[in-house]
């Protein structure tokens, strides 16, 4: 099954990976991110629901266990491969057609800013079918519509298998709306590592 997914990625490689997570995010990302190789050929853009008034510690947290470069997204940054961009607290994060990131303070979506839907929909809009969308643990409905729009555009869509999620509401909401591949985060990491190192 995992071999088949690696092949799918090789046949139809994404140019960006977008990840959304909420409650239970740290645990899931701690399994998913560390296996990714230092020469991952694509950028990774992540929205984690975080309280608005807190400085995000996520980039520092994951830098210790990962070979990838971790940073907090700033307006108009150009996406680079092997780099993970986290949405800053209290801003939506979007991907533009020209390969740069954009921020906005538009209204919250599903009570969240940053919102996963906003990121995912912008990825589908700007990259069409060359997107891998990953939705992880969470207690919200955010991300379900966005993941469906990535799927509709022809991209790859993975959802954390509900039984492995600390909070299964978010994965379930996505699976109710559209069919997606379900995996535990550690397998996601391994598949991406296989694809990332055996490409070409």
């Amino acid at each position: 099954m995992n071999e088949a997914l690696v092949d799918t990625l090789r046949l139809h490689p994404p140019s960006v990976i977008v990840i959304g997570a909420s409650a239970g995010a740290v645990d899931a990302l701690m399994q998913l991110l560390p296996p990714l190789p230092a020469d991952l050929p694509v950028p990774v853009v992540v929205v984690v629901h975080v309280p608005a008034d807190r400085r995000s510690a996520l980039p520092q947290l994951f830098a210790q266990t990962s070979a990838l470069t971790m940073c907090e997204a700033e307006d108009k940054m150009t996406l680079q491969p092997a780099t993970v961009y986290f949405a800053p607290p209290d801003y939506h994060l979007l991907i533009e057609h020209d390969g740069t990131l954009a921020l906005s303070v538009d209204e919250a979506v599903h009570y969240s800013r940053p919102s996963i839907d906003v990121l995912f929909e912008s990825a589908a809009e700007s990259r069409g079918d060359r997107v891998l969308g990953i939705l992880l643990s969470g207690a919200s409905r955010d991300g379900a519509l966005g993941l469906a729009s990535i799927r509709e555009a022809g991209g790859h869509t993975w959802v954390q298998s509900p039984e492995t999620a600390q909070v299964a509401v978010m994965p379930r909401a996505a699976l109710e709306l559209a069919p997606h591949v379900t995996l535990d985060p550690a397998s996601m990491g391994r598949i991406l590592a296989d694809w990332g190192t055996r490409r070409g």
Partner: peptide, 8 residues
């Protein structure tokens, strides 16, 4: 900026 304007 296109992406957010398009959304609005």
């Amino acid at each position: 900026a296109r992406a957010s304007l398009r959304r609005r």
